[in-house]
Design a protein around this nucleic acid. Sequence first.
DNA 1: TAGATTGTTAATCGATTAACAATC
DNA 2: TAGATTGTTAATCGATTAACAATC
Lengths: 211, 211
Amino acid sequence: MKSKEISKVVLKRLPSYLAYLKSLPDDASPYMSATGLANALGMGEVQVRKDLALVSSGGRPKIGYLRENLIEDISQFLGYDNTTDAILVGAGKLGQALLGYSGFAAYGLNILAAFDARPTTAAIDGKDIFSMDKLEGFCRSRKVLMAIITVPAEYAQEICDKLIACGIKGIWNFAPIHLDVPANILVQNENMATSLAVLSMHLQAQIKEKK
Amino acid sequence: MKSKEISKVVLKRLPSYLAYLKSLPDDASPYMSATGLANALGMGEVQVRKDLALVSSGGRPKIGYLRENLIEDISQFLGYDNTTDAILVGAGKLGQALLGYSGFAAYGLNILAAFDARPTTAAIDGKDIFSMDKLEGFCRSRKVLMAIITVPAEYAQEICDKLIACGIKGIWNFAPIHLDVPANILVQNENMATSLAVLSMHLQAQIKEKK
DNA sequence: TAGATTGTTAATCGATTAACAATC
DNA sequence: TAGATTGTTAATCGATTAACAATC
């Protein structure tokens, strides 16, 4: 694995490769070529090969990459091996769904607890839901760096500021609003409106075509 | 509004503009310049101006765009004006959260009902949850074009095939797996693993920096 | 008028794709 | 060996940014 700078677009493709490799049955060939991966995911084979070259220790001509190694290389590169602790703010429906989702463990994400202005439940799936005044103490003592925002849009910026003041460096934002943050803080927007826009355009085009 | 081809990257930025414009208080200036929008969202002003030129009927030099018009132009372009009916398959935690989320109406999305292999509840927020055998009849009779997949990864492809057979043209996929579909079907992946990868890399870099 | 802003044309940048030598 | 595949270098493509004339 080279420690070359990797661009965001490449980074975003890596999880797909990993998911596909992991989804293969145990009795499949232990080798996987860039060509095979590209075909399975409907991508260009050169693109896949270039991406893999950035994270992998190398494949063998005519054979491909050893699947096991490739999974390990990508996992390690993405930091799935060492878990990241996170907290969640806003224990509404979406917040509770994320809190109860066990699948995040596979991505190295561990949600420690949730915080809410008015907690309606004490815990979900063994994860405590605290009131907001416990936020700072918790983040400081557990040295949490990542937070998930699932509060309504109108409170998101305020919560965001508070989180940064608590030492949070990365924010996964589910609120449909732009968050203003200092340069060293990363906001990753899970923007449903964006996805819907793409889908909506496609459907409109389909309907027009029929006419 | 010109009917020029719009690229996917531009399309994905439009919802942010719209959200910001809508978030402004009523007593703010009725005009908004591309410069102002760019500053508020931390983007390049030329980029914003070019994007707006693609969807808007035009702004006035020195003044900017009439906010009201801009909101209408973007909304119309994104198809938020005429609602899209959709169904949801997989009424687990995430599915239920989406089913109960009232915010989609603002994006012109109307989830009609949900389907599940083993429904545990009859309805959520007034939306029925049916068993899978009702799927085809429902899609055909209501002429549904869009579906939301929130089933576990291992069932996603099977469900996807079934949906296409029912006439679905656009799929919003929350399952962390690549779906194989014909060319005329659009799959929009809400891939949480992708977001996590980006965040995870940022945090790793932050931690390294401190050393 | 002067200056902020629009809209457009040209230059730059980065990512994808094509071409090809090296390898097993 | 022949052919599939890797890995790299060069060409193409598209998107972003810079420059600038037009406008109110």
